[in-house]
Amino acid sequence: MADGLAPDLLPGTLYMMILRSLRAGPLHGYAIAKRIKEASENRLVIEDGSLYPALNRMLVKGWLKAEWGVSENNRKARFYRLTPDGRKQLEVEAEKFSQIMRAVQAVMRTA
């Protein structure tokens, strides 16, 4: 754990990554965390305790829907699915993020 970076360097990035990992289809909480960890080649580790509050805040916003289903090893699990609002939000967040990244990189190169 100690070698992982904190995932929410910038406000909103955690939301963005959760939304992105759900783009392909519904996942349960553990799978989301695992997907982010693997996609970042183990560099980004979501502290598990902060995943569920974030998911709940996103439910309130209406970006996600949650429903109970059966996991790959046949256990009851809660699956999260993107709503149309969530899809839109993902585009907005991704666009904002890449703008910021470009801006920060520009500063780092020239300043």
Partner: peptide, 9 residues
């Protein structure tokens, strides 16, 4: 985790 999930609502 539970407390903060509540707070979200």
């Amino acid at each position: 985790a539970r407390e903060s999930s509540h707070e979200a609502w």
